[in-house]
Amino acid sequence: MQHALAAPFYDIRGIFNQTLLKLFSWSSKGKYYMLSATEAIWDSSNTELFNSKSSTESRFREVVELQSTDIFRIKWKILSERLLQNSEYMCYLVFKFSEKCSGLHCPVMVQDLNQRRNKQTRIVYFRTPQTWNMSGDDNQGPKEREDGWMEVNLWKFKTDPNYGCIPINLKLATYEGSMSGLVVCGLEFRPM
């Protein structure tokens, strides 16, 4: 006779293993890591700017839809052990547009707030711009992913084994209009 708790325990373990595979995986190029939008940008105290909603299309249970805002921040710390040491990584924002999204036709400025003295900003586009409107960087525009979501390259960094974590503190601001209707699945960190 089987124990009554055996079946549910097996299901929970399977779900846990699936979640780990989604969050922390190996690719042919090395380790990559994905962080959910609810961890990176969700601020439950500010429901006027963000709306957390369930999703069956995402690898995470919940995604974050931006409301009427022209600025949002991404703040998190990644444990260095989750990434390859002494490696360069790219940080991608994984997103879609809701049916009500009519903006984001203009460039978005990305500023690394951990490097305030530097004052360097990166320009990205959530919608493919006209070629005359782009500067020399070919990683500015969105790319469609195999899973049906879009991604845009926000940030480049190098891992350092001397530090226990990698702090992320990015500010995204539109040049014009609102980011209302931008649905964020999460961040993906991939080695270059």
Results as ranks from 00 to 15, higher is better:
101 C>Q: 15
26 W>Y: 13
22 K>S: 14
122 R>C: 05
72 F>W: 04
185 C>G: 01
140 Q>G: 07
74 I>G: 05
108 V>Y: 02
80 S>F: 01
144 E>A: 13
131 T>N: 10
152 V>F: 11
76 W>D: 15
91 C>N: 09
51 N>E: 15
142 P>M: 06
67 Q>S: 14
126 F>S: 08
58 S>V: 09
48 E>V: 10
189 F>L: 14
131 T>G: 04
81 E>N: 07
11 D>M: 12
77 K>P: 01
89 Y>V: 00
145 R>I: 02
123 I>Q: 07
102 S>Y: 05
78 I>C: 11
167 P>F: 04
38 T>A: 00
71 I>G: 01
42 W>L: 08
97 F>K: 13
7 A>R: 14
64 V>M: 08
10 Y>P: 00
170 L>E: 10
2 Q>P: 03
85 Q>C: 02
144 E>P: 05
183 V>R: 07
54 S>M: 03
121 T>C: 12
132 W>M: 09
48 E>F: 13
59 R>L: 01
29 K>E: 08
115 Q>L: 14
105 H>W: 11
162 N>K: 14
89 Y>R: 00
170 L>G: 09
39 E>I: 02
111 Q>R: 15
93 L>D: 05
100 K>I: 07
21 L>P: 01
1 M>S: 13
67 Q>D: 06
110 V>I: 14
64 V>H: 09
170 L>P: 03
27 S>P: 00
54 S>I: 02
123 I>V: 12
76 W>G: 09
72 F>I: 00
6 A>Q: 12
55 S>H: 02
151 E>M: 10
183 V>W: 06
150 M>A: 00
46 N>H: 08
152 V>E: 12
71 I>C: 10
115 Q>Y: 05
84 L>V: 03
171 K>S: 13
190 R>I: 11
57 E>H: 10
125 Y>T: 01
174 T>I: 03
135 S>G: 11
106 C>T: 10
70 D>P: 04
50 F>S: 02
184 V>S: 09
109 M>D: 03
104 L>F: 07
30 G>C: 03
85 Q>E: 12
97 F>V: 02
73 R>G: 05
13 R>Q: 15
135 S>E: 11
104 L>I: 09
96 K>P: 00
5 L>M: 12
89 Y>F: 07
191 P>V: 06
174 T>K: 05
52 S>A: 15
188 E>C: 07
104 L>K: 07
128 T>Y: 11
88 E>Y: 04
139 N>D: 11
35 L>C: 12
128 T>R: 15
4 A>H: 14
129 P>Y: 04
47 T>R: 12
112 D>R: 04
21 L>K: 13
84 L>M: 11
167 P>H: 04
20 L>F: 11
73 R>N: 09
137 D>F: 03
98 S>K: 04
87 S>Y: 01
180 S>C: 09
11 D>F: 10
120 Q>Y: 06
35 L>D: 03
19 T>M: 03
12 I>M: 07
